[in-house]
Simulated scan of single mutants.
Amino acid sequence: MKQVLQGLLAGVLVFLAGEARAQRLPFTWDVPKVVAVVDVPGVIVSEGVPVRMSAVLSKEKPEVIGQHLVSRFQAWELHVPKASLQPQLLRETMITALDTKQFISYTAILQANPDGTTTVFMGEANLGQGRLQPQSTVAPVFPGATDILNAELESSRTVTYAVSVGQSEVEAFYRTELGKAGFLEEEPRLFRSPNDEIKLSFSSTKEGRLAVVVVRRTVAQAPASPAAD
């Protein structure tokens, strides 16, 4: 009987362990010796991917924090590439892990400060949401665009970016999107609405990509003619 009970207990424990893994809570950050929270934007969009950002200030050294975070990633059953495969895009140390079930990447950037503290930037990129179409207040931006730059002058607003498609494809995109917004193409690459005009221009980058410049200006309204007596 004792052996039977032990077997049943072992079976229950295995079942509960499996349930615990199936209901695993989302990953939470844990940085040792935190002394302050650093204010950063809550969510940014990097290359069209939404990234939730946070940061803290720690009294611990970057090497200790890095080892601690790797252990935590592994405890959460996240995939942690070996050191030689970790992307290092900055001077500061970067550590990245991937939740292969939820398709969320977690990246920590460890910045050593002159006073001996460490600023830890923590980013969570929801790769499962896919890439968002870049946005601009000037005009729609072609999907997949990079190097997006917005500028505002007294008389106009401009957005520039680069794409890896042909000019005709970009022009067709604007005919469709600006048409939906009430613009008419009165001249090649010049679109007008009752209040605004948008002009497109193109050039080639050194990398062989297409540079797109979109300029938007407000159209002066002609004064209304006096009513005839």
Rank of each mutant, 00 (worst) to 15 (best):
I109Q: 13
T100D: 11
I104E: 04
A151Y: 02
T146I: 01
I109A: 10
Y106N: 10
I104T: 13
P134A: 13
H79T: 12
V80T: 08
I95L: 15
G123T: 09
D147T: 02
T118F: 03
L127V: 02
L132F: 06
M94N: 08
T146E: 04
P87S: 05
F103Y: 13
S155K: 09
F103M: 12
V138Q: 08
Q102T: 12
V141D: 01
Q86N: 08
R157E: 07
K82R: 11
G128Q: 09
F73V: 02
T119S: 12
K101S: 13
R157L: 01
L149M: 10
E92F: 05
L89E: 07
G144E: 00
A75Y: 08
E92A: 15
D99K: 05
P114K: 13
L85C: 08
S84N: 09
E124H: 02
T100E: 14
L90P: 10
L153M: 12
Q102R: 15
A112E: 15
L110M: 08
L85Y: 11
G123F: 01
S136A: 04
H79F: 15
A145S: 14
L110T: 03
A145Y: 00
I148H: 00
Q129D: 11
P134G: 07
G128D: 09
A75G: 15
V120R: 05
T117L: 05
T100Q: 13
P81T: 07
T146S: 07
Q86K: 04
T137L: 07
Y106W: 03
S136I: 02
E154F: 11
R91D: 14
P87K: 06
D115C: 10
G130S: 08
T96M: 05
T100Y: 05
G130W: 02
T107P: 11
E152I: 07
G130R: 06
S136Q: 04
P140F: 00
S156A: 14
A112R: 07
V80A: 00
